[in-house]
Design a protein around this nucleic acid. Sequence first.
DNA 1: AATTTGCGAAACCGATCGGCTGCATTTATA
DNA 2: TATAAATGCAGCCGATCGGTTTCGCAAATT
Lengths: 106, 106
Amino acid sequence: MRRDVFQAIADPTRRAIIALIALQAMTPNAIAEHFDSTRQSISKHLRILSECDLLSKTQQGREIYYQLQIEKMKDIDKWLDQFRKIWETRFNQLDNVLSAIKNNKK
Amino acid sequence: MRRDVFQAIADPTRRAIIALIALQAMTPNAIAEHFDSTRQSISKHLRILSECDLLSKTQQGREIYYQLQIEKMKDIDKWLDQFRKIWETRFNQLDNVLSAIKNNKK
DNA sequence: AATTTGCGAAACCGATCGGCTGCATTTATA
DNA sequence: TATAAATGCAGCCGATCGGTTTCGCAAATT
């Protein structure tokens, strides 16, 4: 299934997983210990995160290390870029509304 | 209902709405013209975006102008900050996995 | 005063979500 | 070789999602 990064980070548990393994790769069991839900539930989240390439796996014997593909996080940053340009130049938000209304009245 | 910014931007239509009205406030009807779905469907999206303070309303007669609260977009930027620090300093992702495994073997 | 316009709320619907339990498989250990 | 450990998958469930149609209401227009 083709997944979307924005849909992946919508869930708070998945965001917590991302933050947890950002610095160090971890196994599903080790990750699950940090949460209240079951290991299988975490496993599902890992699958979703993997499907949109936010995570990659490295098998080591019977253990599987999941690590964050930090490059993929830049996708979100790129999307934010268009708005970053705006909030860096906009000083008075009210101008926005008023000009819109004025243009419409013409 | 208390809404979450990350859940709000998970939907592609809502992201398109955000981009559409980023520069200029618009009415629900005007926004809906840019999409295939019904006006009521767009109205639902506007409600969700409003509930997490991404949008604000300005009534003008019987028309309601929705405008993006660009400040709220910074919430996403703030969340990305923790990862931005990482991708700016990490040159070799492989180091990450290997050190994790090594630490585990101790 | 009657009609049109702009909008939101409610009710419904199939699809998906996020959690669970149970099971199968592979690898390590006793 | 038998057992334990690590993991993923399938199926179930109630809740939520995103869409639609129908309706009601207030403001503008005729």
